[in-house]
Design a protein around this nucleic acid. Structure first.
Length: 343
DNA sequence: TATTCGATAAACAGAT
DNA sequence: CATCTGTTTATCGAAT
């Protein structure tokens, strides 16, 4: 099944069923980060003067990813690794277009001009909203921004009846995973509030995404838009068998998420250097644009995880998860502190 | 078979 | 006034 190569704490959202790797197994109290990190991170920690900027695509720009200057508020998330796209020395990634197979026009494409109808994405609305918000520079979006992100990244919704927008709003209101944030009236542009992901539900949302991805993959690039489109084109049921992952309710007993300030900033992780994370076909999906496919880096409780792709495949089936111990955290700039240190 | 969950529709109120 | 946003309720189908 899934290839995890380390030992996660009992409360890990990605606790592996088995196959703990001794080489990557970590105890928070046993510093040995170099070996752990070097297992998947070729280079070792170096200059603290280099920092990784956690940034992402401005939701309204519709343009390329991760090109906007980083601000403090841009860097508040541990899961978005869009900064990877900013650093040519880290990844052989270039800023990727959001949609490589569809014209990025503002005008909707008439259905009759499309060679086929895009297949409905397998993701639940919660996942779509999650991706949209996480792909925003400040990890918060207005409803309209969520709409636009979904339409931009999933052509299905470009043509779908408008009811899905109602579903988005319904999901935002109903789901505990999302928080409504009142806008600063002095700077408010547009109606409504901003929405963000409740930090405590982020691991679960990530897990849902990961499982959804895994369950629907037929190749290593399941989520690539071309695959989605080709599947629809060929009438293949590449994404047909939906498997709903509903583990969010397992968190329903958790204390209500707090409105702690976003984590942010610059994280010294010069050591992170990845190669071979992208195949020759660099067409990306929205998850990949946000770093979900290539790599996750997030905090859960007192632990932090660095989820790396496997040797060559860029899919979540073959990721490796590294639990960063205290020393690694220090080398990485103490992300615990950045995360608020409330765990 | 009952329950759960997600999707969908609809109604409504408030804000812009 | 129209539109958008947010909430709530209800229903349905699929999965468990």
């Amino acid at each position: 099944m899934e290839k995890y190569t380390q030992a996660l704490p009992p409360h890990s959202p990605l606790h592996p069923p088995q196959n703990n790797s001794e080489a990557l197994s970590r105890s928070p109290s046993l510093p040995q980060p170099a070996a752990a990190l070097s297992a998947s991170l070729p280079s070792s920690p170096t200059s603290p003067s280099s920092y990784l900027h956690f940034t992402s695509t401005p939701w309204a720009s519709g343009g390329s990813h991760c090109l906007s200057p980083s601000t403090v508020s841009d860097q508040d998330d541990l899961t978005c690794l869009s900064w990877l796209h900013q650093r040519g020395n880290l990844l052989p990634l270039q800023p990727l277009p959001k949609i490589t197979t569809l014209p990025q026009t503002l005008d909707p494409i008439p259905v009759q001009q499309l060679p086929f109808s895009p297949a409905k994405p397998p993701y639940s609305f919660s996942s779509l909203i999650f991706m949209a918000i996480e792909d925003s520079p400040e990890k918060r979006l207005p409803v309209k921004g969520i709409y636009e992100w979904i339409v931009e990244n999933f052509p299905y919704y470009r043509e779908a009846p408008g009811g899905w927008r109602n579903s988005v709003r319904h999901n935002l209101s109903l789901s505990k995973s999302f928080q409504r944030i009142h806008r600063d009236k002095s700077q408010s542009v547009g109606k409504g509030s901003l929405w963000r992901v409740c930090p405590e539900y982020r691991p679960a949302l990530l897990e849902v995404l990961r499982k959804t991805h895994y369950c629907h993959r037929t190749n290593s690039n399941l989520l690539n838009k071309p695959v989605l489109l080709e599947a629809a084109d060929n009438g293949q049921n590449t994404l047909g068998e939906t498997m709903e992952i509903s583990d969010l309710d397992s968190l329903s007993s958790n204390p209500p998420c707090s409105l702690t300030p976003d984590h942010e900033e610059l994280v010294p992780m010069e050591s992170v250097e990845l190669t071979e994370v992208v195949g020759e076909d660099s067409e990306k999906d929205p998850l990949a644009d946000s770093g979900y496919i290539e790599l996750h880096y997030y905090q859960y409780q007192q632990y932090q995880y660095l989820v790396l792709p496997g040797d060559t495949e860029l899919d979540l089936e073959s990721v490796e998860i590294l639990q960063l111990d205290a020393e690694a955290q220090e080398a990485a700039g103490s992300l615990l502190d950045l995360a608020g240190g409330n765990h």
